[in-house]
Design a protein around this nucleic acid. Structure first.
Lengths: 326, 326
DNA sequence: GAAAAATGTGGAAACGGTTTTACATGTTTC
DNA sequence: GAAACATGTAAAACCGTTTCCACATTTTTC
């Protein structure tokens, strides 16, 4: 493959001149420029970005560590992040952790070696100690010490869900979700705030304290038996708010399998704002997060990384998404 | 950030020796090795992968150009490709083209500059002329001249669908899908074979020739009105095979909106084998592609790229996936 | 016990660019 | 006519590695 020297030799100029043409910097005579451009085409020279990034000390690559790009919301977020960063000349490296802390750690190491320009972190694991704070880290929906973050307004999401259920006449409400409270080192995730917003609003309005159910979601393979048990232990429940649409879906199926109608007998609200493509059934009522707004926020932070500016945490609004289950 | 020279100086050895320790190559005395390893830890040195890839002439990065990682099947394929390549030390760069040829071309250029080790191409656009055949290209479900490919056994998929519909007593069958036949430069995509397999089998069994409907899917935003029209113009149809589960979903919805029961009145078979997470309704009967097997095939080809071995095209089996719509 | 082989080490070139420095022209300006 | 400035080039230094080669030391072999 031809390099810059080949171009220079063939055009009869110095490599600096070629470099100036490529980078459109400094003074180059018009004829010289044209001659060089012609040679570049002729021998189909392409600058080696690897060599370039060595001296430039950046490579325009951003890594996104997330549990699973197959999960609908994460997948959409990934899509918008890629689209948004593309506009600004960045490429996105995808790192599926499958929620496994070991894979996250390996990736974090790899990325350090690769000198990526930024790492977007989406995890529920307690990896604080493995985070090299000198790395350009950015987290979504999670606070780590010294790491700027972007998050949905999860608390408000919980409030919106509670409001709706109460409006619809619910009296006994329940939250179903796993927000990593069971870990040996409990961390207050952003996601926990969904539950808190929900709880606070219900308390404020004088309704009976909700029942808080946590169960291990594991690797996004939901366990219907688990939900079955929960539902049957609490037949008085008439309103359910779940941690995600995926869980809501399992809950609704299980309710209907047990002869409880949704939304007539029990109302169910999910979280994420699922734009399901293959849904032949009811549309899930949900609290929506906007992957597009989140992606824009992430992009803003990453641009600021580059400018070495102070990076502010950003909270992105959520919205109530009408559906047929609450 | 410390570099290899800093390590060499601090350890009182030459950089070549440090390199040997890092890469575990050549001869190094045990004590020398230990001393160097100690220094590496002390100054927390990490090798710069960018510089490394310059001399190694490879960077262990594979790019995946695909229309949209949000599309369920593509998303799953991406997930498995990432997982599979991760095992072999590769990182995956994701490039959503949104089906836009311009974005594909820009990405192809970018990737050439970045000297990625391989480019996985998943596209329906006619980009043959823009493909630099010197690049380590690999395509999925699409044949380009001189580019090795991996594809599902699409023809067999069509056959399986036809078989099932006939078994279920269908007499008038229809194919719905857009396989880029309308383009100015018609290309025979792998996907077209789904239709051909379907058609051939129906003909062979002496059933009336199926009606072949093509409509523009556009950017994966399906147009219900379009489907509405198709369905009402052909009320005699009792069996439908669609290009994907996503289209099948739209078709089923539209059929039911028009008072035709699925599968009682019309049977519908999709393609992809949709593992929908948020589906509260019927499970779509489908011809399944295995993203895992495909990912493994892709990985095999990529490994062979590296070994400079001849790369064979690979056809991956499809399977019938039982559902509730046919 | 000398030659041959194995082991151990460092300097320098190479990878393919960017940036800096030094210098050579040509054009104004006073 | 010399100083100041603009325009352009060549050569060298640098980025952080790997690799080749030369050389030194130790161990094995006959």
């Amino acid at each position: 493959m031809p390099n810059i020297k080949d171009v220079a030799k063939k055009a009869g100029v110095g490599i600096a001149t070629v470099s100036r043409v490529i980078n459109d910097s400094g003074y180059v005579k018009k004829e010289t420029r044209e001659k060089i451009e012609k040679v570049i085409k002729e021998i189909s020279y392409v600058p080696n970005e690897i060599a370039r990034s060595m001296t430039r000390q950046r490579n325009d690559i951003v890594a996104f560590i997330l549990p699973n790009s197959t999960h609908l919301f994460f997948g959409e977020l990934l899509y918008f992040v890629e689209e948004e960063l593309y506009k600004y000349g960045y490429k996105v490296m995808i790192c599926n952790s499958s929620e496994k802390i070991e894979k996250e750690i390996v990736y974090l190491d790899m990325l350090k070696n690769n000198r990526v320009d930024a790492v977007i972190l989406l995890t529920n694991n307690d990896i604080d100690q493995y985070l090299d704070k000198k790395l350009p880290l950015l987290s979504f929906d999670r606070r780590f010490d010294g790491v700027p973050f972007v998050a949905s307004d999860n608390y408000e999401g919980g409030v919106l869900a509670a409001k709706r259920l109460i409006e619809q006449g619910c009296k006994k409400m329940m939250f179903i979700g796993d927000d990593a409270q069971g870990d040996s080192t409990p961390v207050m995730t952003e996601v926990t705030k969904r539950r808190l917003g929900f709880l606070d609003y219900i308390k404020e309005k004088g309704y009976p304290e909700m029942i808080n159910i946590e169960y291990p979601l594991g690797d996004y393979i939901h366990i219907p038996e688990n939900i079955h048990k929960i539902i049957n232990e609490h037949p008085e429940i008439d309103g359910i708010f779940t941690i995600s649409d995926a869980v809501a879906c399992d809950v609704i199926k299980e309710l209907e399998n047990n002869g409880r109608r949704v939304p007539e007998d029990v109302k169910v609200i999910g979280f994420d704002g699922g734009r399901s493509f293959l849904n032949l059934g009811k549309k899930i009522t949900s609290i929506g997060q906007s992957p597009k707004l989140i992606a824009e926020a992430i992009r803003r932070s990453i641009i600021n990384f580059y400018k070495k500016e102070e990076i502010e945490n950003q909270i992105i609004p959520v919205y109530f998404q009408e559906g047929e289950t609450a």
